[in-house]
C-alpha cells in the first residue's frame, strides 16, 4: 500500500485534492539579536527582496535574491534563520515563554530550538534532545551562530526523557514523522502505510513519556510535517482518550483538524487542531494540549 495513486486517493477521502506545490523560501528574523526593519533594509541592499508573511510575526518570504539567503554576512551573524513558513508556527503557539523551562524533543537541526530561545529572549532553560549525533553537530552550529545561551543539548531518545528528572513548563513535540511530498521528491516512491503506522506508534510512545515530565499548568505543542491522519488527528484523538489531555484552541494559519477519518469518528475536540495542506507552505499539523482539569487536580494531591 504505497505509491502516488494510493496516497492521492487517501487525501481525496479526507477532502483534499493533490496538487503540485512550489515551495517558497522563508526566513525568520531573530528578534533578540537584530532589529527587523534594519535587517530587511540591509538584505534589500544585497538584492534579497522580502515580503512579510501575513500569518507569522517574524517571518518573510524570499521573493527574489541575487545572493544566497544562507550565505550572507547577516545570516552568518545570526540575525535570521532560514525556516520554512509552516515550520515557524508550532513554537508561536506557546503562551508566555520567558523564563520558562522548555523541552524540545527531536530538536536537530535546531530551527525551532533557536526560535524558542528567541521568544524566550535567552531566559529560562531549553533542554533539547536528539538521537542522531551528526545532526547534533548541526544543532550546535545553529545555536552558536544565533547566540543562543539558554540551551542544554543531550544525545538522548525522547522516550528516555524521564531520566533527566525535570518537570517542564512547555514541551515542544515536533516528533519524527513521515514527512510529505513537498519537501521530498521521492516521497510517494519511498513511503508505505506501514511506515506511517510505525511512525504513529513512535509518536504515541514519545507523547506518553513526555506527559510524565509536564508541570501542572504546562503546555504541549505537538506537530508533524506529515499529511497522514494516523500521525496527526488520530494520535490526538488517542491522546485525549488515553492520556487525559485536552486540546486547546489555537489562533493560527491552517484548517480545522479532521474529526472523521476513513470512516472513523474522532473526538469532537480534534477539530481544534490545525491541519495545513500544502499550498502557500509545505504540509503541517499542529495541536496544543494541556492536562485535562480533573487530571491536574489529581496531580496536585
Amino acid at each position: 500500500m504505497s505509491g502516488r495513486e494510493f496516497f492521492q486517493k487517501r487525501y481525496e477521502q479526507i477532502g483534499w485534492k493533490l496538487k503540485e506545490v512550489n515551495l517558497k523560501q522563508a526566513i525568520r528574523v531573530n528578534q533578540t539579536y537584530s532589529k527587523e526593519k534594519n535587517l530587511v533594509n540591509r538584505l534589500s541592499g544585497l538584492g534579497l527582496h522580502l515580503e512579510k508573511i501575513p500569518f507569522l510575526n517574524n517571518g518573510y518570504w524570499v521573493l527574489e535574491s541575487r545572493v544566497s539567503a544562507g550565505a550572507t554576512a547577516e545570516y552568518l551573524l545570526g540575525y535570521y534563520s532560514i525556516q520554512e513558513a509552516a515550520a515557524q508556527i508550532p513554537v508561536s503557539l506557546f503562551s508566555n515563554l520567558k523564563g520558562k523551562k522548555v523541552l524540545d524533543v527531536a530538536a536537530a537541526p535546531g530551527g525551532k530550538t533557536v526560535q524558542l530561545s528567541d521568544l524566550m529572549e535567552n531566559t529560562g532553560v531549553i533542554i533539547a534532545l536528539d538521537v542522531d549525533k551528526r545532526r547534533l553537530n548541526a544543532l550546535g552550529n545553529h545555536l552558536e551562530r544565533c547566540h543562543v545561551a539558554n540551551t542544554v543539548v543531550y544525545l538522548l531518545d525522547a522516550r528516555q526523557v524521564s531520566t533527566l528528572k525535570l518537570k517542564f513548563d512547555r514541551i515542544l513535540l515536533d516528533v519524527p514523522c513521515s514527512g510529505n511530498f513537498v519537501t521530498d521528491k521521492n516521497w510517494f516512491k519511498n513511503r508505505t502505510l506501514k511506515d506511517i503506522e510505525r511512525n504513529a506508534k513512535l509518536q504515541r510512545e514519545i507523547l506518553t513519556k513526555a506527559i510524565d515530565c509536564l508541570a501542572d499548568q504546562g503546555e504541549i505543542v505537538y506537530s508533524t510535517c506529515s499529511l497522514e491522519p494516523e500521525e496527526n488527528e488520530v494520535n490526538m484523538d488517542w491522546a485525549v482518550k488515553h492520556l487525559d489531555l485536552q486540546i486547546q484552541e489555537v489562533d493560527c494559519y491552517g484548517n480545522e483538524g479532521l474529526t472523521s477519518v476513513f470512516g472513523k469518528q474522532l473526538d469532537s475536540s480534534v477539530r481544534l487542531c490545525k491541519r495545513i495542506w500544502p499550498g502557500e507552505t509545505q504540509g503541517f499539523f499542529v495541536c496544543k494540549l494541556r492536562r485535562s482539569k480533573k487530571d491536574e487536580s489529581k496531580g496536585n494531591y
Binding site: 550546535g140 545561551a149 540551551t151 543539548v153
Partner: peptide, 15 residues
C-alpha cells in the same frame, strides 16, 4: 543552567 546540567551533555549555554 549549571544547577540542572548533567555530565553527559552535548552542548550547553554559550560555546
Amino acid at each position: 543552567l549549571k544547577q540542572i546540567i548533567r555530565q553527559d551533555f552535548f552542548y550547553a549555554g554559550v560555546f
